[in-house]
Simulated assay, not measured.
Amino acid sequence: MSNPEIVDSSFTAIVNAPIEKVDLPAWAFGLPDAEYQGCSPAHVAAGFTTAPDGKRMSINVEIIGGSLMVQHYVEKVGERDHLVLESVSDVFTPSGRTTINVLWELRVRKIDAESCEFTNHVRSTATDALIELLDRQGIPFDVFRSQRQPMSIAHNQGETPLFAASIARAALR
C-alpha cells in the first residue's frame, strides 16, 4: 500500500476584503498564536520557522479526534492568491506516536471589488509509520480511515469560515 488517502476535504467561505489586499503566505507565516487558536477550538498553538532547506515553515498544533497533531507545513507554492503547504505531521495517539502526510492548499478567487472566495483544501495520506502502527494493533486501514474522516472533515468545515475572517482581518490591517 503506497500512501493511501485518509481524507480529502475542501470547503469555501467568503473573505470580506478585496483580493488585491489578500496575501495568503503573509497571513500563514505571520499568523499570531491567539489568532490561530481563535480559528478552531481544536487549535492549540501556531508559529513559524524555516525548514532545513531554508523554505518557510508554519508549525501548527491541534487536536483532531482526540489525537494531538504537530504539523510542520513547508511552503511548496507561495503566491498571494494560492498557497500550498506540505507536512509530515506528528500524531500522538493513545497507542503511540506516528506520522501522517498532510497537503494543505489555500486559494482565493475574486468575487467582486470587495470580496473573494476562500477555498481550504486538506488532503491527508498514510505514511509507512502509520500503516505499521495500525498493523501492530491489528486495525485495518479502512477502519482507521472511516473513523478519521468524519472528524477531519468536521474540523476543516468548522475552521474554514474562521480562517476566511482571519484572512480578511489581516488583509484590512
Rank of each mutant, 00 (worst) to 15 (best):
R145G: 01
I167N: 01
R97Y: 02
Q137K: 10
T160S: 14
T12C: 07
A165M: 09
D8L: 11
S95R: 02
E86A: 06
E117K: 08
H43K: 05
F141N: 07
N156W: 07
D81Q: 08
A164P: 01
L24R: 01
L130H: 10
R109F: 04
D81I: 01
D90V: 04
A26L: 03
P18T: 04
A154M: 06
M57Y: 02
I59Y: 01
P41I: 12
V143A: 14
T12E: 12
F29Y: 14
L31R: 00
C39W: 06
V143K: 10
W104P: 00
H43Q: 07
P150H: 05
Y73Q: 07
I153M: 12
E105N: 15
K76Q: 13
A26M: 01
L68K: 12
L106E: 12
R145A: 12
V7W: 11
R148F: 09
R109A: 14
A28N: 03
L85P: 00
P4M: 15
N3W: 04
S124M: 14
V61I: 13
H43N: 15
T49F: 03
L133R: 03
A28C: 13
E114F: 06
V61E: 13
M69D: 03
D142G: 08
V15F: 00
A42C: 12
E20S: 13
K21N: 12
N60Y: 15
K21D: 04
L134S: 11
T49L: 05
I6K: 02
W104R: 15
A126T: 05
V84T: 14
R173K: 13
Q157M: 13
M69N: 12
G96W: 05
D128N: 05
D33T: 09
G96R: 04
K55F: 02
D81Y: 02
A168Y: 00
F144L: 08
V15E: 00
M151G: 02
A129S: 11
I14Q: 07
Q147C: 13
